[in-house]
C-alpha cells in the first residue's frame, strides 16, 4: 500500500523573526548573534556533518560559517529565506574546507549502468539501510550528500536546494539521481560480497 508524502518535522522560527534577528546582527548586536547561533547551531552542525562526514571538521566549518554570517549580515536582501541564506554559506564553507584539505573529489558519473534492478524485498532493504547508511553515504560526493541531506533531513523542495547550492534545479535532480544509484549499487555490491 502506498503512503502519502511526509515532511520531516524540523522546528523553525518564523522567517520574519529570523530576518529581524539578522538585521540586529547587521547592527553588530552580539546578543542577537548568540540567539541566532542557538537557533541555527544544531541545524548547521547536522548539515555540515552530513556534507563533510568528518567530525573533526564540523566545529571549524561551523565557526567559519557563523563568522561569515556576522560579517555579511548587512548584505541579506530578503530575496531568500534566512535559513536558505545561512545554509548556502555553510555549504560553501564546507566545500571550501574540504578543498583546502584535498578531500573534495570529483563527482563520479556511472554512466551507462542502470540501477541494480533485482534486489531483496523491502523489509530487507530497510534493514540494510539502517545498518549501513553511514558507510554508504561516505561513498557519495559532498555535493550528492548535500542534496540528500537537504531533501531527507531538512525537507527542502528541489528549488530551495538549488538556491542553497547555487545551481540549476536540473543539477540538483541529476545529483540526486546519481546519489540514489550509487547508494543502491554500493548496497548491492556489499550484499554480493557476503
Amino acid at each position: 500500500m502506498l503512503h502519502g508524502p511526509t515532511q520531516p518535522a524540523r522546528p523553525r522560527a518564523s522567517d520574519c523573526d529570523e530576518a529581524t534577528l539578522l538585521s540586529r546582527v547587521a547592527s553588530e548586536d552580539m546578543e542577537a548573534f548568540e540567539t541566532l547561533y542557538r537557533l541555527y547551531g544544531p541545524r548547521l552542525q547536522r548539515f555540515v556533518s552530513g556534507i563533510t562526514r568528518q567530525p573533526a571538521l564540523v566545529e571549524e566549518v561551523l565557526d567559519d560559517t557563523m563568522m561569515v554570517v556576522w560579517r555579511k549580515a548587512y548584505t541579506f536582501n530578503h530575496a531568500a529565506k534566512v535559513s536558505t541564506w545561512i545554509l548556502a554559506i555553510a555549504y560553501r564553507q564546507s566545500l571550501k574546507t574540504l578543498k583546502r584539505l584535498g578531500s573534495l573529489s570529483e563527482v563520479e558519473l556511472d554512466e551507462g549502468v542502470e540501477a541494480a534492478a533485482p534486489g531483496p524485498d523491502d523489509e530487507l532493504q530497510h534493514l540494510e539501510l539502517r545498518q549501513h547508511l553511514d558507510a554508504a553515504l561516505a561513498t557519495l560526493s559532498p555535493e550528492q550528500r548535500t542534496v540528500m541531506e537537504l531533501t531527507y533531513y531538512f525537507g527542502y523542495a528541489c528549488r530551495e536546494i538549488a538556491q542553497i547550492m547555487g545551481c540549476p534545479v536540473d543539477t540538483v535532480k541529476t545529483r540526486m539521481f546519481y546519489a540514489r544509484r550509487k547508494l543502491k549499487r554500493w548496497l548491492a555490491s556489499r550484499r554480493e560480497a557476503i
Partner: peptide
C-alpha cells in the same frame, strides 16, 4: 525505498551541539 531512506535520516539525529 526512498521513504525508508528518509526514516533513516530522521532517526540519525545529530547529538545536540554544545551551543
Amino acid at each position: 525505498w526512498l521513504r525508508g531512506l528518509q526514516e533513516q535520516y530522521a532517526e540519525d539525529d545529530a547529538p545536540a551541539a554544545d551551543v
